[in-house]
């Protein structure tokens, strides 16, 4: 039972991060129809930038966190303008390849600036665990879950109640309609990229703080976004959140219960087995919409 609870909690914590990254992916897809395979690199870059700010300036973590978010927003704007805008309307394979190329460049930048070794992250959360009933829980986990929940609530409120959020939803619904209502669609695309970069960076910083170190393997979190968005539905924000949590839990359960049987590695392959099954049964995911094709 304790193992079960422990795995569940780990799954939810990691799943929350997946949800953030997947959210970025979905926001971009919804608003512009582009796919971003560099989402994991946004996450990694965010963690490194935050670490650099902490090391250079000795400001508190919260300040570094916010500064990194500002940086990510700027990065998102820049990339959208320089790399992705020319891609609108291009064939799918070009879009996929450009974001794969982008991920390669971002990885190269991180490695050139900070090397490929693991770098320690200064302790952010108190180390002694809190007892939740019988279960000792690290404070970092709780903070992380809390931050993820807060971010998700803020974003939901943003989409529901602000003018800009409404404009984004209108653009996602139909670019033609949005244009005819005077919404600056291009600016909405740019905004979606900056939100995507920022939420992923937030995920990266939380991960760095929880693990106490950052390295290139953080980029792998981007790969997991694919099973997550397939499960939740490519165009559903609530789907990204639910999908993230489900995949996080599934991964930890298969790691905990299947690894002893198959000799390791089940944790990494389980999300992709799930992906195949979902595609077979329900290709548009739990919350996605199936688009009718015109003949």
């Amino acid at each position: 039972m304790e193992l079960f609870l422990q795995l569940l909690l780990n799954g939810l914590v990691v799943g929350g991060i997946y949800a953030l990254v997947a959210l970025g992916f979905v926001i971009i897809y919804k608003s512009s129809g582009l796919l971003n395979f560099a989402q994991g690199e946004f996450l990694m870059l965010g963690a490194y930038v935050c670490l650099a700010i902490l090391e250079e300036t000795r400001v508190p973590f919260v300040a570094a966190f916010l500064l990194t978010l500002v940086f990510s927003v700027a990065l998102g704007l820049l990339l959208e303008r320089v790399v992705l805008r020319p891609l609108l309307g291009q064939p799918l394979i070009s879009v996929i390849m450009v974001t794969l190329g982008l991920s390669s460049v971002l990885k190269a930048v991180v490695q050139a600036l900070w090397g490929s070794h693991t770098r320690p992250f200064p302790p952010v959360f108190a180390t002694e665990p809190v007892m939740l009933g019988p279960l000792p829980v690290s404070q970092g986990y709780l903070w992380s879950l809390g931050c993820v929940a807060l971010l998700l609530v803020l974003l939901t409120l943003f989409f529901r109640f602000t003018r800009l959020g409404l404009a984004m939803r209108a653009t996602a619904f139909s670019q033609q309609v949005a244009l005819s209502m005077g919404i600056p669609v291009r600016r909405i695309f740019a905004l979606s990229w900056s939100i995507a970069a920022a939420v992923s960076a937030a995920g990266g910083m939380l991960l760095g703080a929880m693990r106490g170190g950052v390295d290139g393997s953080l980029a792998f979190y981007g790969l997991k976004v694919i099973p997550v968005v397939i499960l939740g539905g490519m165009d559903s924000i609530s789907g990204a959140i639910a999908g993230g949590l489900i995949i996080g839990v599934l991964e930890n359960f298969s790691g905990g219960y299947l690894d002893p049987l198959v000799g390791g590695g089940a944790k990494d392959v389980a999300p992709f087995v799930a992906l195949v099954l979902i595609l077979m049964v329900k290709p548009h995911g739990l919350f996605g919409t199936a688009h009718a094709r015109r003949v």
Binding site: L87, M97, V98, L100, G101, S104, V105, A108, A112
Partner: peptide, 21 residues
Amino acid sequence: VELFASLKMGVFGLTIILSLA
């Protein structure tokens, strides 16, 4: 020499982006 790995990755990525552009 140390930068070679990242140089390789970066040039590879840029090649894809620029050739598509």
